[in-house]
Design a protein around this nucleic acid. Structure first.
Lengths: 231, 231
DNA sequence: TTGTCAAGGATTGTACGTAATCTATATGAA
DNA sequence: TTCATATAGATTACGTACAATCCTTGACAA
């Protein structure tokens, strides 16, 4: 038995790519395969990822540093529980960072970048209710403006927050109303950037973030209310 | 090379209290006992803190998650090198977060909190060039307004950044001019808060952050210039 | 119901073998 | 000589196995 297991593992680890364990766990958290609040037992994870305990422990600690995991003394790790509070806190911060980044982008964007944005926005508008595709394109739309920003620290932070909110939003459907608002706001951002009007772009971006925040929190409240009613 | 191990013992088991290893390394980084850029060799750290390799590795990974340490594949860890770029990036972010926090504080502060701030400010003004004491009181002055803020995420972030900048600023002396500016700005903040004028408080805070940024960057540039000249 | 205690399970810390990287010395050609 | 390259040795990080400690859970008795 041991022999087979060993051979199996060596093949697996040879093939399971150079991708660090850390990233794989992180992705599984973000994509919801490891839900918020679930216990992360080291031995289980080691089996699951065809690895051993030490790498898992290190990955968990790093994820704790980044805020995706909570570890308590002698009690193990859990995926960070995220609720209404936390969502609002993060959106508040994004409402400060994003306008800041857009302001710089508006002043420094190349025409190629701007037309890239416009192209993605057009694709979004031709979408017909496909939420999955929307999320994908929306990510790309926004990442155009962040990718090249000089403030790497802000970029990293923004990316972390986007990932966390991504995993939260995945649970809920975009309402028709919010969908329309998003398109309006995106258009506003694009036209402001084309006009090189940094303040307008910033203002519209702030509105966009606040709208997303309200939308998510409404969903969370509705979900909790119906949960309560079920009892 | 083995510089870490040598300095080690003195601090190490002085009282290797129940404090988690993670915090002890972190403090040593912030207080400058482990300078930016120095290699962090696992075996040395294990000796230094009277521990063994696994706990050290986990602590390093967590610190990487928080941004204090940089780890590269098979090459070990270093204390994060911090330079002019990084400082400016962080100050830019603080210039967004701090006004946001002060705005809420201005609206929600108790009179006890406000008089606490005033008291600390008075102590600062009676100081006579004692930089060490100034740093201490300055920390306390600002932490009054953050400690109670509802946005825990922002508080944590702010704290991390403050610690990083603290370790950077420690290298340089406050110029007389900047000292005077700080007192002015602090006064402005206090009076704005007392008047419950959130916008004024926010504006003054932003100015305070930008001033601190300029001051630090000037120092860094001067230091680098004189380093260049030495060659 | 409440409190105590024992068993099981998970985390935490230690030791060791292996693999990768870095350094210094030596060898070769320009 | 001087520079570049190659190689051997030392150093360090990485992964596995194991022991010890702590927490949790469930049963049993008061």
């Amino acid at each position: 038995m041991g022999d087979i297991a060993v051979i199996g593992r060596s093949l697996a680890s040879a093939e399971n790519g150079e991708r660090p364990l850390f990233h794989r766990i992180r992705e599984d958290i973000i994509d919801g395969r490891l839900e918020a609040g679930t216990r992360l037992v080291v031995a289980d994870l080691a089996r699951r990822y065809d690895s051993s305990s030490n790498p898992v422990r290190e990955a968990l600690h790093q994820l704790q540093g980044e805020g995706f995991v909570v570890i308590s003394q002698n009690r193990g790790a859990r995926v960070r529980p995220v609720g209404e509070h936390f969502a609002r806190d993060i959106y508040d911060i994004r409402a400060l960072i994003e306008p800041y980044m857009i302001r710089w982008f508006t002043a420094n964007a190349t025409t190629a970048q701007i037309s890239e944005m416009e192209k993605i926005q057009n694709e979004i508008e031709q979408l017909d209710g496909d939420h999955e595709a929307y999320r994908e394109l929306n990510e790309r739309f926004h990442s155009v403006s962040y990718a090249g920003h000089f403030n790497r620290e802000a970029v990293d932070m923004e990316e972390r927050y986007r990932e966390i909110l991504f995993m939260l939003n995945k649970r809920y459907q975009l309402t028709r109303g919010r969908w329309a608002e998003c398109i309006q706001e995106h258009r506003g951002i694009v036209t402001a950037i084309k006009a090189r009007d940094a303040e307008a772009a910033a203002a519209m971006t702030e509105r966009h973030v606040h709208g997303a925040c309200r939308h998510l929190i409404d969903h969370i409240r509705v979900a909790r209310a119906s949960e309560q009613a079920a009892k």
